[in-house]
Simulated scan of single mutants.
Amino acid sequence: MTPPHADTLAAPPAAIRATAPPTSSRTRRPRGSPHPAWGLLLPAVALLAVEVLVRTGTVPAHLLPPPSDIAATLLQLADNGLGWHILASSVRVALGFLAGAVLGIALGAAVGLNARVAALLDPTFQALRAVPSLAWVPLLLLWLGIDEAPKLAMIAIGAFFPVYLGTASGIAGVDRKLVEVGRLYGLRGITLARRVLLPAALPSLLTGLRSGLSLAWMFMVAAELIAASRGLGYLLSDGRETGRADIVLAAILLLALLGKLSDTLMRALEARLLAWRDDFGTGAA
């Protein structure tokens, strides 16, 4: 049945078009919100406290090197190929995350859109999601050897499950009224999924991507601890074997900074794609 006045409607209503408001109103920091520099306060206080505790002899320096010694270690490592270690780990995370995210979005969309596919696949994926990361290592080494393939596969496994879960739950949680309105205006199949379901599920999908990216860094460390000759995970293992706590803490610091940087980039993408939202988190200008 054709809806009344359908000939005057050139496009679906605004409720399902997710039109973004002017970006200038979304880029300003909400009134009364704390400055981003507040996030540096806790790390600065913690570093200063560690420096004082070690310098005063309260904490043994061989167990917890002061931040000044860690900075000196980073400078020393920078002259001995630290950049290649960072590049190796970053490339592994990027490739593994990309593979896991693409597969997670594809299978998550299939599960969210089709109840039969969900009944077939979801119980198995939920069971595999509970398997610890290190449990995959022996099997991947047996199947793929000790080159790059098992490392990338392990990182992809870590990224897959959060992205899959975010996509599937996001599509399944779309307001039924939006779907009915889309069908009322003639949207079916792939068009309905592209114009209504996927945009409505985008917040959950992006949350899954952020979680998957953080897990990709964690799984990368687990993979490099087992079999690697280059990377931040290798530096962690090398520092442990040589009794160099400063190298271990330097590698941990670099992992934290790289993880924060990648999450910041993902948050910027999220803010851009979800600029049309007006929720509590964005606040009012």
Rank of each mutant, 00 (worst) to 15 (best):
G104R: 03
A106S: 12
L107E: 01
G108H: 08
A109S: 11
N114S: 13
A115N: 11
D122H: 03
P123T: 09
P123C: 13
T124R: 05
F125T: 09
F125Q: 09
Q126W: 05
Q126I: 10
Q126C: 12
A127I: 15
L128N: 03
R129W: 08
R129H: 07
A130I: 13
L134R: 07
V137D: 00
V137Q: 03
V137Y: 01
P138L: 09
L139Q: 14
L140W: 03
L140E: 03
W143S: 03
L144Q: 10
I146D: 01
I146Y: 06
P150E: 10
L152S: 02
M154K: 10
M154S: 09
I155S: 08
A156L: 01
G158L: 04
G158P: 00
G158K: 03
A159T: 10
A159S: 13
F161H: 00
Y164V: 00
L165C: 05
S169N: 09
G170R: 04
A172Y: 04
G173P: 00
G173C: 09
V174N: 07
L178V: 12
L178I: 08
L178Y: 10
E180Y: 01
G182C: 07
Y185P: 05
I190A: 14
L192M: 15
L192E: 13
L192D: 09
A193T: 11
L197V: 03
A200G: 07
P203C: 15
P203Q: 15
L206G: 06
G208K: 02
L209P: 01
R210E: 08
S211M: 15
S211I: 14
G212N: 02
S214Y: 06
M218T: 13
A222D: 07
L225A: 14
I226T: 14
I226V: 15
A227Q: 09
R230D: 07
L232T: 04
L232W: 02
L236T: 01
S237I: 08
D238Q: 12
